[in-house]
Amino acid sequence: MDARTTHAATAARSVLEAPDIARVLTRIAHEIVERAKGADDVVLLGIPTRGVHLARRLAARLEEITGKEPGQMPVGSLDITMYRDDLRLRPARALARTEIPGDGIDGRLVVLVDDVLFSGRTIRAALDALGDIGRPRAVQLAVLVDRGHRELPIRADYVGKNLPTSLRETVKVQLTEEDGRDSVLLGARGTAPADGQ
């Protein structure tokens, strides 16, 4: 794993840097407000690990735009591990936190937030997980990067950057909260299968 990361890092090319990511998130926040006509009933749910950080950043921007007090925007996390369709292909994995905001998601507009949209299988799992938690008015999807290669009929409502990739490439999102810096890296795939699907 380590060997692959270092290899990918040396071959990787940065496609988005910190200021680009900041700009992109601000734009997505504005789009959410525009589409949801004020973002009053919006609940942001990030998909661990990096989706959660992105959801928190989006929430902060939405609070600025709509003039809400900091912390008023409902934001949470949705772990999809138990709903994955590839569970039986690998050893059981550790679970991440699912944190649904106090008022729940019934009748709200849920915006799922993830870092990379790839096969679409994560989002399918997230939709299944949502169904067990409540019944939102609508569900939308915001992603930082859409790298293509969908395997399911799923599309994002808000896309930070469309990044045409080949299947041999890897897309790695780094965020300050998790990795110490903000960037999106495009690298060549090693022998190990890519993570973050």
């Binding site: 772990d79 138990m82 709903y83 569970l87 679970l95 991440a96 936190r97 699912t98 299944d128 067990d132 938690i133 409540g134």
Partner: peptide
């Protein structure tokens, strides 16, 4: 610890 949170949900079931 994570699975304990399922007990607070309306649907206390996972498809795993």
């Amino acid at each position: 610890e994570e699975l304990a949170r399922i007990a607070d949900r309306p649907i206390k079931k996972l498809p795993t």
